[in-house]
Amino acid sequence: MKMLLKYKYSIVWIIIMIGLYFFNNNLGHKAYRITVSNIKEMLLFLPAIFILVGLLDVWVPKETIIKLMGEQSGIKGFVIVLLLATVAAGPLYVAFPIATMLLKKGARLAHILFFLGAWTSTKLPIALYEIASLGLKFTLLHIAISIPAFLLIAFIIEKIVPKDSLNMIHEK
């Protein structure tokens, strides 16, 4: 019963999908196919990321994270999170557990918010894909505008939101 309750939204959406199938066979089948392929992609990605986060969590000491991206890390810290986001892979929701793990270990909130911003624009595999599909000029404009803007946003949100108000769940 507890299990069913946890998955109540999924169950509702599945019922809606079945409804869609009876309303329009084609659409329902298509929705099913897209869902299955998305879930496959997610199942290929998420467990790997969580194992990585788990390993980092137990092996990397708090002091290291504080030194690399804590309150005192300054510009060096921003460069480190930018590099981290650049070599990353996967959709944004993959970045959330990494971000909260780093926050828990003492990373500064502005650095982590910038990390999320960079994740959405400078990831190398994605940027290469973007260049191939939309051109170098487009991609360079995208990065050149996003990076300074997200840096500014990181400072603004840090000013508004106190770090200790964050949930920072990742294993509860």
């Binding site: 998955y7 939204y9 999924s10 509702v12 959406w13 869609l20 897209i34 869902t35 929701y93």
Partner: peptide
């Protein structure tokens, strides 16, 4: 649970 319901919703939306 959250991710799964998002996936199903996106599937319906993209169809």
């Amino acid at each position: 649970p959250e991710v799964l319901s998002i996936m199903i919703f996106v599937g319906i939306l993209l169809a």
